[in-house]
């Protein structure tokens, strides 16, 4: 005998498929929505459907967008000679939040991970090389802003020799101390990189 309404059980099952959500959280979210005003629930459902129907991938930078090219690639205010290569669309969001980068992006859609079977063909590496090649010298600098870990370094080490013959400056993001932290809690790797990358003090 079914004790819970089928629609409720179905929603619990769908929530439980999401990453990081277990059966208890799925139940809580479902019952929260059950008690919410109808228009709030409708807005959530509409937002999910709109996201699936309208979001596409930019054919230039492979970031998620609703228009192709995306607003960043289409903007004449951005510096198209400076490409920042990132692993995921979330990295674009993080850099855009800084409000200091005026170049454009290239989203790889992951990092090379041979042990997990993720090779160069699974990422947008060939598209990056073609983009720089076909820019007729407009691209001056490519920032390899992959994550500062083994996979990120590995991906950068793979891309660098492909771009180097194209006469562009290759850079990596600086590594060092996070703002607001205490020096004594920094790990040795970060601290040694921070010392290597120290800058003249203009105070």
């Amino acid at each position: 005998m079914q004790t819970t309404a089928a629609a409720v059980t179905a929603l619990i099952e769908e929530f439980a498929k999401l990453p990081g959500i277990g059966p208890k959280t799925a139940q809580r979210l479902t019952f929260f929505l059950l008690r919410s005003p109808a228009d709030q629930t409708r807005r959530l459902a509409d937002a999910i459907i709109r996201m699936k129907e309208q979001v596409i991938t930019c054919s230039t930078c492979f970031n998620i967008t609703e228009t192709d090219p995306c607003p960043i690639c289409a903007s004449p205010q951005r510096d198209h000679g400076l490409i920042c290569v990132v692993e995921e669309p979330l990295d674009v969001l993080a850099i855009e939040k800084t409000d200091t980068f005026r170049g454009v992006y290239h989203v790889l859609n992951g990092a090379l991970s041979p042990m997990e079977g993720i090779g160069p063909k699974d990422l947008r590496i060939a598209e990056l090389v073609a983009r720089v090649q076909h820019s007729s010298g407009e691209v001056r600098e490519v920032i390899l802003a992959t994550n500062p870990n083994y996979e990120g370094d590995y991906t950068a080490a793979y891309i660098a020799p492909l771009l180097r013959p194209l006469n562009v400056t290759l850079t990596r993001l600086a590594r060092g101390l996070p703002l607001g932290g205490d020096l004594e809690y920094a790990d040795e790797g970060t601290l040694s990189r921070a010392l290597e990358g120290r800058r003249a003090f203009e105070g």
Partner: peptide, 16 residues
């Protein structure tokens, strides 16, 4: 090891 593609791949191979 992390800075050279061949050596980093070899590091992966040891771990795998």
């Amino acid at each position: 090891l992390r800075e050279s593609l061949w050596h980093a791949t070899a590091g992966y191979t040891v771990a795998e």
